[in-house]
Nucleic acid binder design. Structure first.
Lengths: 205, 205, 205, 205
DNA sequence: CATGAATGAGGATTCATTCAT
DNA sequence: GATGAATGAATCCTCATTCAT
């Protein structure tokens, strides 16, 4: 049992180390992109030696993949939380706002772009992104189609995938725009979202 | 005159070479990203020696900047053409469709992502993107605000920037989506766009 | 303490490596000049990989500058030692003789030429050379002006800078000559120096 | 005859072209050193195409060699002219002054350094320099040993080579110094030279 | 003769990865 | 486990030289 406890201690340490590396890597990638961030910089940020990183990850690419996976998981959760709200548009607004872009739970837009660009080349990443897309769409679709009584929107089957697609595209388009126009008028944005979301969430007459 | 003709011949060749290089570079960048594509590969693609490229461009970065400038110019023109149409949504659809992504006149979505990602780091590129954004927004805004008699949409001043923002975000969101889900259901897309665009283009009651 | 000892060990190794690189670089520069010596050759001479050099020096130019600085420091010390001697001319003779041009403490004339040539273009090097010149001149001047009782030459204020300039020019001229006429008659040289130095060191009547 | 005249015309043109190239090359070498000056820059300075240079010279190195040869020839002539003067020290002063360093007939000190440095590596250049040295020394020696009646200095056989060596070394040392300390006090220099030259030119008692 | 476009080998530098300690 | 020195392949870029026109 002591042995076991030791092992689990070791495992915990291992997990903590991986975490440190991923956090450092994410920070560096946000700052400089996947290519621009060197292993040396990541190691320095993680306050460890470059060599040690290779005890926890096979290669730089493995780190990138893990970070992508995580970002998509976070994104999926964030989207899922959206529809719990009565007030979708302000939730989207918050989602889009991104107070502290480096905390573990946030989606970083710059990174998201990097990931999307990478996906056009790396099929592994492309696949991960598609899994994510599918999950998000079905999630959103479920919500749109559920009756209002159950907290849904009561859209009819036909319109659901259409609306889900639009909603997602809009959200992503806004993210993209927001990440390169940081001083976009927030009020304007909120108003626009209110209107749009209302339209999308209301069953067509 | 012979001199002049010769000169113009040389200038023509020079332009043609630049074009060759840009085309090759664009192809490589699409394939491997700005970083991933090496000058050697670009040279090989352009069927010339690496050294020759430097007769026409100061550096790899100069090529990247030129390609970005061109992409944005094309994108701007494409957006401008959109509103000439009676049927906006199907034009957006075509815009989004992008049959042959390497022809000179087309916007390449992978490249667009690459550019956006790069913009988060390179202020020069960020500025170019913002110029582009401003131009496109005002273009679209003009069209939305003009009276229907003049081919516009007759939206009132308040709503114009809001709608323009939404429209653009939607378009870009769809582009992004389309570039990673190439087998997205086209009919679904067309239907969704029809509905959305109608909503966005109609004055609020 | 073990930590401290380890650290000092690492620091020692680091210093040793820098030394290795500088020695190799100096040998290569003497052989082929600053331009002619490639980093690859220097690395090979230092028996290490080219990449490793950059752990210790920022650039090839940084190495060049360091070597120049060192050469000038050595040269300054050598000049300073000259005037401690009763027999200046034979010290100059030794100075000029330079048995083993690659040992750390020696001035290499070929390198000195390279440095001087480089100084006509690189203001940083020019400045270093001028600092060196000023130091040497004042050093020599002090000695010339001090009373004989203190081991000086007792020259009056007026003549001091004139004589210092001549003495230095003569020494440098001889170095230059010696570096390209290695089989210059040593006896001839010694005689000439004896006479010249005597003249220069004696107060004008 | 017409043929001959044509040929000689052609030969003249050829000589003129070579001259142009050498002049341009010298200007470039002075500005940037042998290595720093590119064939392209030389061609531009000579107002011709890079390719044309190769009709007149085998290689860049051939140009360098020719320029060195010329510089030494000029230097030899300049030294020879020195002793025609009654007032040697002021002639040396002029020699050292170098008003317009790019005119064909002048010695350029920066170039001289470049040449000397190159000589430590290239035996061909080293030999040329030694030929030059020998010529200059014998020239100077002749003058020193000739009777005063014949415009010489009347030095006795023994001291001649010694004095010649010193004189030359001094002159070269001053050149070196002057080329890196352009704002050296001219009056100081003149005074120093006066004194030194007098000493060197006067027979030992 | 003359041009200048084209070549390609070579140079400085970077960085993911390995390995002796 | 941990270090960080070491490697060497790969990258961007330059420039002497050639050759089709």
């Amino acid at each position: 049992m002591s042995n076991q406890r030791q092992e689990s201690k070791a495992a915990a340490r291992s997990r903590a180390q991986k975490e440190r590396i991923l956090a450092a890597a994410q920070a560096c990638f946000v700052e400089s992109g996947f290519h621009g961030a060197s292993m040396a910089t990541i190691a320095e940020t993680a306050e460890m030696s470059p060599g040690l990183i290779y005890r926890y990850f096979d290669s730089k690419n493995a780190i990138i993949l893990e970070i992508i996976e995580r970002q998509l998981t976070v994104a999926r959760r964030r989207i899922r939380e959206l529809h719990c709200s009565q007030n979708l548009s302000s939730r989207i607004f918050e989602y889009f706002e991104e107070k502290e872009p480096r905390e573990k739970d946030s989606i970083n837009h710059a990174l998201y772009l990097e990931i999307s660009a990478q996906a056009t080349r790396d099929p592994q990443i492309a696949e991960a992104l598609q899994r994510y897309d599918a999950a998000v769409c079905s999630e959103l679709g479920g919500w749109l189609s559920h009756g209002r009584a159950e907290g849904g929107c009561g859209l009819s089957g036909e319109t659901v995938p259409v609306r889900a697609l639009m909603l997602l595209s809009l959200i992503e388009g806004l993210k993209l725009r927001g990440s390169r126009e940081p001083d976009l008028d927030r009020r304007l944005l909120q108003d626009a979202l209110d209107e749009m979301v209302n339209l999308l969430v209301t069953p067509a007459e």
